[in-house]
Amino acid sequence: MLPAAVPFVVFVLWPLLHGLAMSFFDIRLAETEFIGLDNYRNLAADESFRYAIWNTCCFVVLVVPVVWLVSLGIAAVVFPLGRSAQSFFRFAFYVPVIAGSVCLAMVWMWILDDHHGLLNYLCNSLLGVNIDWLGRTDTALPSLAVVVISWSLGQPIIIFLAALSGIPPELHEAAAIDGAGPLRRFWYVTLPLLRSASLFVFVTQTLGVFQVFVVVLLLTVNGGPAHATRTVVYGMYETAFTPPYDFDYAAAQGTLLLVLLSMVAVVQFRWLGR
């Protein structure tokens, strides 16, 4: 127990609590001064932070339901195909998770490129339009959302496939005998039984999407254009690790992120929980 406890306390628990405490101070090289809620007051007036919160919420609203729906749909289509098809698709959709966000972000940077990108080539030849996906305020955030969705499907699909295999086939047979078609069976038999798996997917995806960072850092210029893709974690990174290195102000942003996350988690548990 002890070998785990020491790093847990030193590198996990302590920084977390220290972060909360830090947000109430003004930390400079020479002295540290208690400033109460000043950091939070500044945040309330900070326009770029408001953008960050709004964009982060947009990401969650765009990504999480789509990931849930698509992965559930894929699992439902793949499940009846038998074991080998299941493991093939499980593999196919988990490979992007393996590749990691940095590698994929670089490929997407190329695909979404204004002049040399694959996507614009397709758009050009099929629809005759050329869109600067990452350079326009109205398309930048949805483009990033699609990128995030493309590598988020692997884990939910595995979870849904495992949950589907836990449903006794007798239930479906009984419903079929009672005259329920496949869609009705899915809606009234399968879906309610996948409730806890769905809850898990919703909660983990929400937690993940709230931390969107890599795509913003690598695919956009400082969360641009015009703050359109700035997220909370990106804002934290920028505040603390680029000049003027304002650590306590970033810690206050982190604390607010924590509060926001807890609220969302509670709502999700209430809504979907037993």
Partner: peptide, 13 residues
């Protein structure tokens, strides 16, 4: 909880 929340204190440490 996201680890990022503790990023700054961890870095100072």
């Amino acid at each position: 909880l996201p680890r990022q929340v503790a990023l700054m204190p961890l870095y100072l440490l």
